[in-house]
């Protein structure tokens, strides 16, 4: 039984709870007969949907509303992001603004055990990763003494590396929606190695059986890779090939992102 931390500021459940042992087959096995369970080809990405601005139609002017927001879906991954800023920051750097990211999983977002409300180490690390991936794209010199805050909540997660990539894409869209000066939008994509083959945009089931996963985030116009993370063993040429393929996938994600952002600009102001 795993212990649930008692938090006096929340409604607490029993002190210990655990997932039951599921005896059914569960989800379909990821790689069967060389193909993927959902019928995609090895380098096919899941369909992407982005909505920037308020989720509902009626616009209201509100001083507490975020400067920019985005809702991002990629397959089953659902992420919502809000960007505040530039606003007065805690750290007041006269030369550059600062960019801070806050990342959290909703308690029901992961396919396995429910996540506790207290932030885990992996959520804190992902927040750092998102900061490092996005900061090179933001013109922080244009916002001295100010800070730009991004808050990301994962409503549903499907593959850890795919979720991190999706979060990066979501923040890009939110920053663009907020009108923050960017050098370029950052697009990210993930891959996993399974039986010596690189498979793009793996979901949780596929990532679990892969021996290595990596994701790349890229600024296509500047041709710069803003973040690279690999976990698991590969031979060096495999990594090279993966980074190459992943960069190409990033370009495709970039095209989708640009199209959505353009469409949202062309709509009557909402």
């Amino acid at each position: 039984m795993s212990a649930n931390i008692f938090d006096r500021r929340r409604v607490n459940g029993p002190p210990r709870s655990v997932e039951p042992l599921y005896t059914d087959e569960g989800d379909v096995k990821p790689f069967t007969n060389g193909g993927r369970a959902d019928g995609r080809s090895l380098d096919q990405l899941r369909p992407i949907f982005i909505k920037t601005g308020p989720l509902a139609v009626q616009p209201t002017f509100s001083p507490t509303a975020p400067s920019g927001s985005a809702y991002y879906e990629q397959g089953k991954i659902r992420i919502s992001c809000a960007v505040y800023g530039p606003r007065q920051g805690r750290k007041s750097n006269p030369r550059m603004g600062s960019f801070d990211c806050d990342f959290q999983y909703a308690p029901f977002s992961c396919s396995w055990k429910r996540r506790p409300h207290i932030k885990g180490a992996d959520e804190k690390e992902i927040a750092l990763i998102l900061e490092q991936a996005m900061a090179p794209a933001i013109r922080l010199e244009a916002y001295p003494k100010a800070c730009i805050d991004a808050f990301v909540t994962v409503i549903e997660s499907d593959g850890k590396f795919a979720t991190i990539s999706a979060a990066i894409n979501c923040i890009s869209a939110a920053l663009a929606d907020a009108g923050i000066e960017l050098y370029d939008i950052v697009a990210a994509c993930s891959m996993s190695l399974n039986a010596s083959q690189w498979v793009s945009d793996c979901n949780q089931a596929e990532e679990d059986v892969s021996q290595c996963s990596l994701f790349v985030s890229r600024m296509p116009s500047a041709d710069e890779i803003t973040y690279l993370l690999q976990q698991g063993k590969t031979m060096p040429d495999q990594t090279d090939r993966a980074v190459q393929t992943c960069s190409n996938s990033c370009a495709r994600v970039y095209a989708v992102l640009s199209r959505y952002l353009q469409a949202s600009m062309e709509q009557p102001a909402s």
Partner: peptide
């Protein structure tokens, strides 16, 4: 979102399960 997990019941109510609700208002919404 509702997640169902298994646990031991409270000694005083051995036949009852738990329904724990929490509302999260994060900086993301406002």
């Amino acid at each position: 979102g509702i997640k169902a997990e298994v646990s031991e019941p409270d000694v005083k109510t051995p036949n009852e399960g738990y329904l724990v609700t929490n509302v999260e208002l994060s900086p993301m919404c406002s």
